Deep mutational scan, measured.
Amino acid sequence: CHSECLGNCSQPDDPTKCVACRNFYLDGRCVETCPPPYYHFQDWRCVNFSFCQDLHHKCKNSRRQGCHQYVIHNNKCIPECPSGYTMNSSNLLCTPCLGPCPKVCHLLEGEKTIDSVTSAQELRGCTVINGSLIINIRGGNNLAAELEANLGLIEEISGYLKIRRSYALVSLSFFRKLRLIRGETLEIGNYSFYALDNQNLRQLWDWSKHNLTITQGKLFFHYNPKLCLSEIHKMEEVSGTKGRQERNDIALKTNGDQASCENELLKFSYIRTSFDKILLRWEPYWPPDFRDLLGFMLFYKEAPYQNVTEFDGQDACGSNSWTVVDIDPPLRSNDPKSQNHPGWLMRGLKPWTQYAIFVKTLVTFSDERRTYGAKSDIIYVQTDATNPSVPLDPISVSNSSSQIILKWKPPSDPNGNITHYLVFWERQAEDSELFELDYCLKGLKLPSRTWSPPFESEDSQKHNQSEYEDSAGECCSCPKTDSQILKELEESSFRKTFEDYLHNVVFVPRKT
């Protein structure tokens, strides 16, 4: 048989008469490798580009789960590009990614509803959504962080984005990388972005840091009482949809009607710091009717980097990364020049730590249904340095008659930039024990000054392991946590139920 035959053949030295091919099969003959313009397919066939392209389009058009959109890589027609490569849609070739590779997620039936953290986790790592997304989240724990972890990498949506009755959302900033909504599939009414009845939605994105392009379709905003109209108009300008909307697409009466839409800028007039305090004062603000001013709200939190936005980490279910302080308005003076500047002394802060701070007014709604208010920009203030805590785990070892090696770990709280350490030492008198000992005694162990690591005695271990207080009263049991108490109650309830079950099964009433 021919060298490319495997198993047997019907005619000697003829690659077209093989029972099976050793390498690849091409047009009725066995070959060692697939010549151009053919590609290896499933490690035994040679196919042309049209064959591989037909497989790709067949799966793409069917949208069946589990099928493969075949691509070409290293002269092979394979189910998908290997790690580190992405497909070129024009020629199906796998090309190296520039940075992290995109991950295209194809949605069944063309859309997916995100109504819980669990459903959001199914899209973790996706960068391109081939379909439409509907966000409908009523509640949950730590929602802002969970949504950002699972949806934060999405850069492109081919269909539309719909935010509907998501009472738990305060902001859409968890879509931190969303840059493009194509609108290839539109919501009824030709809408590519749809926001309806979101009672706590206050911000779409921080438009000073976020760009969003909507290729096709219109915007729809109705019944978002805490979303200011200025935020919607800003989205029109940034996304390129200005002029597409009709009169009733953006409701003037049901958007922002319960919001404090600040239209003035508060400026800080005085800032002073110490290692654990920050004193702030800002310019006074009074609405047209000074009785509408209820006070100020001061927001602050630790910020290692200057990239904080107002609604980071917030949701309507209680999660809030900001510390909020309510401040009463100052006494009002008739003389504008003698107006008191409101302020606040922030206490209990960490030394040498940068804080993000902003302040906003708290006002009631005027009778004319106009909203007044003022808010400052987010500023960054760093507390002063102070003395560091003591170095940890000092170790001293003498390696000769004239040297001592000293080692330690950095302090747990540096409280500033540590530039150097101060080492103090003092000579001590020799131990009298060394002169009084009889060095001729056998088995004498000389006193040693070398360091030995501390260890816990058996008594201390027994005390720590004991669940009861000892007789001397030195140790006591740790208080039980809520989960331990709940577990004990469940076990007790189970024992009672099981005992009742045994009584009912074992003891049967005697027939009379």
Score class of each variant (00 low, 15 high):
Leu252Ala: 08
Cys228Gln: 03
Lys337Thr: 07
Ser158Glu: 06
Ile395Gly: 11
Ala195Arg: 00
Pro287Cys: 02
Leu107His: 14
Leu266Ser: 01
Gly256Gln: 02
Leu280Val: 14
Pro351Phe: 13
Val397Thr: 07
Ser208Gly: 15
Met346Ile: 14
Asn136Arg: 10
Leu345Ser: 08
Ala316Met: 10
Ile271Asp: 01
Arg247His: 06
Leu406Ser: 15
Thr118Trp: 12
Lys409Ala: 06
Pro329Arg: 12
Pro336His: 05
Trp282His: 02
Gln354Gly: 03
Arg369Met: 11
Thr383Val: 02
Gly159Val: 00
Tyr191Lys: 03
Thr215Tyr: 11
Leu331Gly: 15
Tyr300Gln: 14
Leu266Ala: 02
Ser166His: 03
Ile114Pro: 00
Leu169Lys: 00
Asp384Arg: 11
Glu236Ala: 12
Arg369Gln: 10
Leu204Gln: 01
Pro336Ile: 08
Glu156Trp: 06
Ile163Gln: 01
Leu143Pro: 01
Pro394His: 05
Arg281Trp: 13
Phe193Val: 10
Lys277Pro: 00
Thr386Met: 03
Leu147Ile: 05
Trp282Ala: 13
Phe174Cys: 13
Pro391Asp: 02
Ser119Lys: 05
Glu109Trp: 11
Lys360Asp: 04
His106Leu: 08
Asn136Val: 11
Met297Pro: 00
Ile181Val: 06
Leu123Phe: 08
Asp257Glu: 07
Arg370Leu: 06
Leu169Cys: 15
Tyr191Met: 06
Ala259Thr: 12
Val381Tyr: 03
Ile378Val: 14
Asn334Ala: 12
Lys218Pro: 12
Trp207Phe: 14
Ser116Gln: 03
Ser389Ile: 03
Leu147His: 01
Ile188Cys: 06
Gly373Asn: 08
Ala144His: 07
Trp344Gln: 05
Trp352Leu: 11
Leu293Pro: 05
Gly183Val: 01
Pro391Gln: 01
Leu169Phe: 09
Tyr191Asp: 02
His233Ser: 13
Glu231Asn: 04
Thr361Glu: 07
Ser166Leu: 04
Thr241Gly: 15
Pro287Ile: 08
Leu108Tyr: 14
Tyr160Asp: 01
Pro287Trp: 02
Leu178Lys: 00
Gln382Leu: 09
Tyr285Pro: 02
Arg347Tyr: 07
Thr213Phe: 08
His341Val: 08
Thr113Asp: 15
Gly159Arg: 01
Thr371Gln: 15
Val363His: 03
Thr185Asp: 10
Arg247Val: 14
Gly313Pro: 07
Ala374Thr: 03
Ile378Cys: 02
Asp115Ile: 05
Ser376Phe: 00
Glu264Gly: 06
Cys261Thr: 02
Lys301Trp: 06
Lys350Ser: 08
Ser208Ile: 04
Gly295Asn: 07
Trp352Gln: 04
Gly343Asn: 13
Ser398Lys: 01
Glu187Cys: 15
Glu148Gln: 10
Asp393His: 08
Pro394Tyr: 08
Val308Asn: 01
Ser402Cys: 14
Ser171Val: 03
Val324Ile: 02
Asp257Phe: 05
Lys103Ser: 10
Leu161Asp: 00
Ile379Phe: 06
Gln354Leu: 08
Tyr167Lys: 15
Thr215Val: 13
Arg332Pro: 06
Leu219Thr: 05
Cys105Trp: 01
Pro225Leu: 07
Ala251Glu: 15
Gly373Trp: 13
Asp326His: 03
Gln258Cys: 08
Asn334Trp: 08
Gln199Ala: 10
Leu201His: 00
Ser366Arg: 10
Glu231Met: 04
Ile114Lys: 01
Val128Ser: 10
Leu196Val: 14
Leu294Glu: 05
Leu151Ser: 01
Asn190His: 15
Arg347Lys: 13
Gln382Ser: 07
Pro342Gln: 09
Lys242Pro: 10
Ile154Tyr: 01
Cys261Ile: 02
Glu246Thr: 07
Pro330Asn: 09
Ile378Met: 01
Phe175Glu: 01
Thr241Lys: 11
Leu279Gln: 04
Ala316Leu: 04
Leu108Phe: 04
Leu201Phe: 07
Leu201Tyr: 00
Tyr191Leu: 04
Tyr191Glu: 09
Val324Met: 11
Lys337Pro: 14
Leu133Cys: 03
Leu151Glu: 15
Ile214Trp: 10
Gln314His: 15
Phe290Tyr: 09
Trp344Phe: 13
Thr185Lys: 13
Ala374Arg: 05
Thr241Ile: 09
Asp292Tyr: 06
Phe268Leu: 06
Gly139Gln: 15
Phe220Lys: 13
Ala145Leu: 12
Lys103Phe: 07
Gln199Ile: 04
Tyr372Ser: 05
Leu186Ser: 09
Ile278Ala: 14
Arg176Thr: 13
Ile154Val: 12
Val390Ile: 06
Thr215Ile: 13
Gly125His: 13
Asp206Ala: 14
Asn340Ala: 07
His210Ile: 04
Asn255Thr: 04
Ala251Phe: 07
Glu187Asp: 09
Ile154Pro: 00
Thr383Ser: 05
Ile188Ala: 14
Ser274Lys: 12
Phe299Ile: 13
Gly343Val: 04
Pro351Asp: 02
Ser274Leu: 08
Glu264Leu: 11
Asp292Ala: 03
Tyr372Gln: 02
Ala259Pro: 13
Lys409Arg: 13
Leu161Val: 10
Ser166Ala: 09
His222Tyr: 02
Thr127Cys: 10
Thr273Met: 06
Leu280His: 00
Ile157His: 01
Pro329Ala: 11
Pro288Ser: 05
Leu201Arg: 00
Asp315Glu: 02
Lys301Glu: 02
Ile188Val: 10
Arg247Gln: 13
Thr241Ser: 07
Asn136Trp: 07
Val324Ala: 11
Thr241Pro: 10
Tyr160Asn: 05
Trp205Leu: 11
Tyr305Pro: 04
Pro342Arg: 06
Gly152Ile: 00
Ile357Met: 02
Leu294Cys: 06
Glu184Ser: 12
Val238Ile: 15
Leu252Glu: 03
Ser398Ile: 09
Arg124Gln: 03
Thr386Val: 08
Lys267Leu: 08
Asp326Met: 03
Pro288Met: 02
Glu246Met: 14
Thr213Leu: 09
Tyr300Phe: 03
Leu180Asp: 14
Asn141Trp: 08
Ile134Glu: 15
Phe221Ser: 07
Gln203Met: 09
Gln382Trp: 09
Asp377Ser: 09
Val128Cys: 05
Ala303Asp: 03
Tyr355Gln: 00
Val170Lys: 05
Asp335Cys: 09
His106Thr: 11
Phe175Asp: 00
Arg165Glu: 02
Asp206Arg: 06
Ile135Met: 12
Arg164His: 05
Leu107Lys: 03
Gly243Phe: 13
Leu196Phe: 03
Lys209Tyr: 06
Thr215Pro: 15
Lys209Asp: 02
Ile134His: 03
Phe174Asp: 00
Gly131Tyr: 01
Pro388Ile: 01
Leu196Arg: 14
Asn263Glu: 12
Glu264Ser: 11
Leu294Arg: 01
Asp115Cys: 02
Val104Met: 12
Cys228Asn: 02
Thr383His: 00
Gly110Asp: 06
Phe275Tyr: 04
Ser376Thr: 04
Leu266Phe: 04
Ser192Cys: 04
Gln121Val: 04
Pro330Glu: 12
His222Ser: 10
Arg182Phe: 08
Lys350Ala: 10
